[in-house]
Amino acid sequence: MSAATPDRPTPAGNGLPRDVWVNFKRWSRKAMRNPTAFFLEIAVGVLSLLLFSAVFGDVGELALEAAGYGGVEYLTYLVPAVFMQATMGSAFTSGVGLVGDLESGMFEKVTVTPMGWTAVLLGKAAADLLRILVQVVVVLALAVALGASVETGVSGVVGIAAVCLLVGLLFMSVANILGVLVRDEEAINAASMLFMFPLLFLSPAYIPVADDVAWLARLNPITYGVDATRALVLGEDVSTVLSVTRFGGIYDTLVPSVAILVGLNVLVGALAVWVLRRASSADAG
């Protein structure tokens, strides 16, 4: 039959770049349609920076001195923690968006279009990453206004953004996997707390890691995100759980941390694509 079917109707559809763009536009538009949530996310970041530096400032500086960060202001030390916190928060919002689509039927509607899953995911990820980027810029601008400084300059700021996007992408994958598995917005919100607090506190985010939890910090992806951004903020090797010396200076922190984050992204990202593809072809309902 297929040889003798020249008059089959022509399938509608675009190429991959256009599909990515279409999905990016949809999710960006949805984010703009719901500005309250977006501003709340930013407010949480801003408040964290202000509160933690005000409340823990003096104690934090003692801890910093004890850990060998003499002369570093606690506010400056704290900035990477707020980056990571904001990044993770936004990343979990990405999972909430997916659950919304699963509940509203838009997930199925998108599946039945000729758009491929890679394009759908990339477009959504790009829109979510843009949100993370805006938050990082706001938090950074506030921190600088309060007296913190980025020792590595403009290239450092670009690097910070890149690290935050890597961490964001990683937790977006986690959140989307959870989204498909639990299919419940409240559960995703609860899970975001479950991830954020232990991971942030078991990392050098707020204060340097104590020796007896160092092994836990080593298994924690946030540790590498914090270390990498802090290396860029302070302009020095701040690695807490790894002792790499072959790259020199801040690269002793940056190279292994980024390598670990990229590796985790590949692994968890592949898992997320697999889980979503499976959900889209078995969404019997």
Binding site: A12, R26, K30, G105, M106, V112, T113, P114
Partner: peptide, 25 residues
Amino acid sequence: RSAVRGTVGYMAQHISVDTELTARE
């Protein structure tokens, strides 16, 4: 599969619209 998807329309049993977006969007 992709060619099939490009030549059919599908209206699910449950309403599937993006409630955050307008009809036009």
